[in-house]
Structure formats: structure tokens, C-alpha cells
Design a protein around this nucleic acid. Sequence first.
DNA 1: ATGCCTTATTTCATAAGA
Length: 258
Amino acid sequence: MRLATWNVNSVKPRLPRLLAWLAETAPDVVCLQETKCAADAFPAAAVAELGYATAAHGDGRWNGVAVLSRIGLDDVARGFAGEPGFPDAEARAIGATCDGIRVWSIYAPNGRTPDSPHYAYKLSWFTALAAALGPELAAAADLAVCGDFNVAPTDADVWDPAAFVGATHVTPAEREALSGLRDTGLHDVVPTPMKGPHPFTYWDYRAGMFHQNMGMRIDLVYATEGLAKRVQSAYVDRETRKGKLPSDHAPIVVDLES
DNA sequence: ATGCCTTATTTCATAAGA
């Protein structure tokens, strides 16, 4: 079973690349983030031609998440119980069951700056997510939370820790939010970088950051223990960050036994 | 080489991303 996650930074301009990537990579289940379109504007017909069913959750200009699957797509949940908003709930989480595996595609709030109300929102969003996953983890044998967590788990997950002093994505409270998620029984499936020592998944568009490998690992796959033990390989598809009109994030591709 | 930002919208300017 091949599971992938990709922050596409808007599905509309990325659609040609998404279709080519689906055809080439052939994942069974794909979590997408920052689709930036309403649920009914998602190009479901185009991905259906490649055999994928779509579950989309979107609110227009910002955010937006989706799960694509060619192995079944049941019990779709848009958002989660107790999900905070800013001030209203945003399209940042969608869950679906794909051939017995509970899969969540998430796009965590950015936080903007540590003194911003958006940062407090980010932390509360993670706390609520961990709480909402509790009953699902008790009920589902296999569960994976995939997506853009907007937190670099360690200092090794940013290109230069000194450049992030005073910034979001690296603060102790954000990293505690990640450990809170892991405390529910989830394991960080760390992908192979394919180039360089760090499995970065995001590089800013500006100043040639990608070409200097000045990136961050902020896209994560958190899986239950049973699922994590089935991981045969996991890699950052950095090739997909290259070329014309890329997303600023690279996909993560995970292969699971059976 | 992989090449110096991109997106959608309240569009000729702005907010957001991280």
C-alpha cells in the first residue's frame, strides 16, 4: 500500500503537475493540503480518470484539504469535534477510512509570530486534534495523520536554527504540541531525504532556497505503531519540487507492507 | 543543475505563506 501526502499550494495551478505525479507515483491514498478551493470546486473528475475517489474539504481562498483514494474512501469527516477556529472553523482537517486504515489529511495553522493570536490558535488547534483523535485511536487499529504540521520537530529539521530564533515552527510549545500527538500513540515516520542529510519537505520560493537546500521538515506522517512497523520505505519526493510552477512543498511517499 | 516567489481575490494592490 502506497500512502502519500503533499501540500500542493493550490490545486488549480498545480493540477497538471498533480495528475502527472499521480500517474507516475501511483499512490493508493493521497493526503493533500492547501488546495485553496471550495469542496465543490476540487477537480474530482480529473483525478477520477486516474481511478481516484475524492473527499474534499475547502472554504475558498485559503486552507483546504483532501483525501484521494483508489482503495476505498469511507466514513469521511470534515473537521473534527471541538476544532477551534479563527474565529470560525477553517478547512484544515479531513478524515477518511481507506481499506481499513483511518487517514487524516491536516493543515495546521501557521501561527505567524509567537506573539500573534494566530499562534495561540495554532497551539489550541493541536490540543483539540489530539483530543479528537483519542476515540478514533481506540477504535481503529491503523491510523495515520499526514500533512503540513507547520512545526519542525527538532533543530535538525530547519536549515539554520539561528535563523529561526524568535520565529514560529520551532518554539518549545509547538514541539510540545507534536509530542502531545505522539503521546496518543502516534509515531513519526521519518522519510529518506534522497539528497543531503535532512529530510526537508518545504523550501521557500524566494532567494533560491531550494537550490541551496535551505529547507524545513514540516510535513509529517504520524502513524500508529502497527502501521509504522509495516513501513517498508518512506522518502521525500524532492524531484517534484523542481521545474516550472512547483509547489513550495515536496510530497512524502510511504510504502507499507501488504 | 534544481535557479533567485506564488497564490486568490475585495485584481494595476493586498494579505498570507513559514
